[in-house]
């Protein structure tokens, strides 16, 4: 399966990474090299094989449904690029 420029552009958009137009052909080429390499997986007979969900056979632990954390607004905001009045600030989202 070959990735064209249009697909590369779409993937970059989905990943929310800006890629300039003139970089798209090179990117598509790299995708094709890697996807060509993983194409070998289609040789494997996986009929009836379950996809792995957990590498160690374990059941995830449950905890009591109680509030056990919080009241750390200053710490939560400490590394924010733009925090104002106790909130994360972002550009306008809704017109």
């Amino acid at each position: 399966m070959s990735i064209d420029m249009e697909t590369a552009r779409r993937v970059a958009k989905l990943a929310r990474i800006r890629v300039e137009e003139d970089q798209l052909p090179a990117l598509a080429g790299e995708f094709n090299a890697i996807l060509g390499f993983v194409e070998q997986l289609s040789e494997v007979d996986v009929e009836g094989v379950e996809p792995m969900t957990s590498v160690t056979p374990q059941r995830l632990k449950r905890r009591v449904d109680v509030v056990n954390d919080g009241s750390q607004q200053d710490k939560v905001l400490a590394n924010a690029p733009d925090a104002r009045e106790g909130f994360f600030a972002v550009p306008k989202v809704v017109e």
Partner: peptide, 14 residues
């Protein structure tokens, strides 16, 4: 085609 197949192959590797 990719992700699920890879997870199945992972089961076989294990």
């Amino acid at each position: 085609a990719y992700y699920n197949r890879a997870r199945k192959v992972r089961t076989l590797i294990k």
